[in-house]
Amino acid sequence: MNPATELHSSTLRQIGLIAWVEIRRLLSQTKGLMTLAAYVLLWLLLLLFVVRDAVNVMQQPQTRDMVLELFGEGTVSSLFNWPVAEYALYWVFAIMLQPLFAILLAAGQFADDIHRGTFRYLSLHCSRTALFFGRFCGAFAVMALLSGATVIVTMLMAIARDAHLVGNAIISGTAMWIVLLAVLLPYIALMSLLSVIASSSKQAIVYATLYFTLLSIVVWSADFLFAPLRYLDYILPGAFSSVLYSSTPLQAIGHLGLPLAQCLVFLALGFYAFKRSDV
């Protein structure tokens, strides 16, 4: 094995080890379990008291007619095209709420550990490349687990309502989960960047709030100020979420190019900043 290959595989192993630590932090530490419990409980409330009731309403034939009459063919009416009604509602909530969870949970990737000096220990034993991408993969894996758990609960709710939906529920549930993860990627990558720049996870959340609000205002006022500013939309994660609301997960795959490109840009900037930062 030549040295370059050996180094490459070693970095991959280090990334895996560091990401695994973040999963263990969620699943074996009191703090992580509390986060998990709060997240699951919130989603259970949504699923049991909002989604389930809304699904019952959606099952009435007159509801569809009423929606079409009120809103016409569009975002809202497209919810009736989903093979599993629970997923249609879950999808709307997930596109709206999961990015917020991703921002909150991914805010602590670097800032607190740099401030505490923990990275000084870690960087003695592994490369900065492994540290950066390991933490990013760890945050992504945590979001994958959390969102996966909510997709499974929704799936079970749908199957409990109608056992014939098993096949459809498993296939579209898995597709929905994968698309949702792709949508979350730029949010997590943005927090990797902001967490390197910030001095604490709280400050990273403040930076994220400023980033989203200021950029949205600039994009919104582009028509009055300077038209080309509207292209800043392309560096705003979730800027095109409205397209996703009216798409099923399989249709949404066609719109994932932008989130994936955003993710790459934020990761590149974050990695550059982390390589140059003092630990």
């Binding site: 530490q29 505490r116 000096g117 923990t118 000084r120 220990y121 003695l124 034993h125 490369s127």
Partner: peptide, 18 residues
């Protein structure tokens, strides 16, 4: 260099969770 060097850094703390 990584496997050939060790250090006690000043004012660094281990991860309190593990």
């Amino acid at each position: 260099l990584r496997n050939n060097i060790g250090a006690l850094p000043q004012d660094a703390k281990l991860d309190p969770d593990f």
